[in-house]
Design a protein around this nucleic acid. Sequence first.
DNA 1: CAGTGGTCTAGACCACCAC
DNA 2: TGGTGGTCTAGACCACTGC
Lengths: 267, 267
Amino acid sequence: MPLGYHAIAGELRARIERGTYEPGSRLPAEDALAREFDVSRQTVNKALLRLRAEGLVRVERGIGTTVRELPVMTTERIGRQAPAQREAGEARGAFQGELATLGYTSRSEVEVSRERAPADVVRAFEDDDLPEGGHRRRSARERETAGIAIVRRRKMFAGDVPVQLATGYYPAGLAEGTEIEQQDTGPGGTYSRLAELGHAPVRFRERIRLRLATDDEAAFLRLDTEQRVYDVERIASDSNGRAVEVNMIVMPAHQWQLVYEWTTENG
Amino acid sequence: MPLGYHAIAGELRARIERGTYEPGSRLPAEDALAREFDVSRQTVNKALLRLRAEGLVRVERGIGTTVRELPVMTTERIGRQAPAQREAGEARGAFQGELATLGYTSRSEVEVSRERAPADVVRAFEDDDLPEGGHRRRSARERETAGIAIVRRRKMFAGDVPVQLATGYYPAGLAEGTEIEQQDTGPGGTYSRLAELGHAPVRFRERIRLRLATDDEAAFLRLDTEQRVYDVERIASDSNGRAVEVNMIVMPAHQWQLVYEWTTENG
DNA sequence: CAGTGGTCTAGACCACCAC
DNA sequence: TGGTGGTCTAGACCACTGC
């Protein structure tokens, strides 16, 4: 009796874990696997669906099925570093260190633009985080530029593999004309620049969801249609409760684990 | 030309969102849908796979396909409450409040036992979180009961729908003979009891991963084979860096979003 | 028992990629 | 152009549920 697709998925998984199919290499074509296991191609396809959903392989039409290259990586979401060393969505010390251990180099590309912010970002900027639930007074400049944001789109790579997308929004009334509009934001990054403007981020909120990638995201992250992403919305506010950054971070879920660490005491 | 499975998935999704198929109700059988859309049953099946993966529906063999009942819920992982009001994996004020707004009541069941802890939990208990990377001195009692834990298994429901599983481990040398071994741990819960023992949890670490549910978890959470869970490992340590609780929390990923909120200043 | 989804097949046509 | 996966079918048998 031939194997079912669960068993075939298990066998292929074992081969990947044993290294029979090496990271980054191609699996045999579905035809070939169907012959080997003596099942229909559709059964092999279904087995592969499983591995794809797990993030173990990735298929590309016209090319074939490729074994995942990178191990699961960890992202520490609450750094112990001083604010100056922390920038949302940026390759951080810990991350770079971990990659280095694995023999990968990290790299990121940034594009900056000035855009009308999406509705949910505008809402975050207007929805002040004040204990009393009140509202801040807004300056004329702020009112004029409402809804406009400086947008920093960052693509992160581990070696040549794209691993993360982050889109940071900064109120135009605040960031316009500053180094936040430059590719290189200088020592300490955007958070240091915000601090110099009198709006040091001190309060953070991250909201984690799981979803399928959009087409754009899937294309950049080289994601399979079966694969999911963590969708993290990070809002940073200054001591007046004003949201000074909204960051939308997208990571392949099979590629990352998230870590939060905090204390209830001062320390 | 008949529709493809993407289009069919979209149409079914739209019907669910419109309320044509109501939450908790049954979808037409695959046969019936195949006739309606004039495709093979397999094509309908593939469309449903999509909706299952999204968590919009759940299929049970021999029964049918059911529309998800609950909306996506939020779990605030870092409470502003005093430690006494916070217990990992426990129905918290915010959660109960949210459910109440939706017309659901929350409820949980707890089972307590004394067990040999799994390897990763033992490691967490032995791996002290000290800045110097050193080790604590261990008492005789502690050495005798190494590897043994008081285990609190908590099942959470929203209305009648199971929504979360949490398994809390407490070092036997610490928790044995205390109210932590009781079903009802008293006012403030286990964290207050730990505090009374001189081991108030002050440092927390949560590690989030995504994975498929085990068979047991799937059975309890009524999960579809296509659906994923958040696997959260929460470690709580006292001011000496001793891990006093390890909590393994399992949540259907389509059912929850996680929120972390913190400040870099004392506040 | 009838009704439901799970799984499988053999063959087909298509879209996309690299050469 | 040849190879790869995407998708589809018509029919089949099975496992499980509820009556």
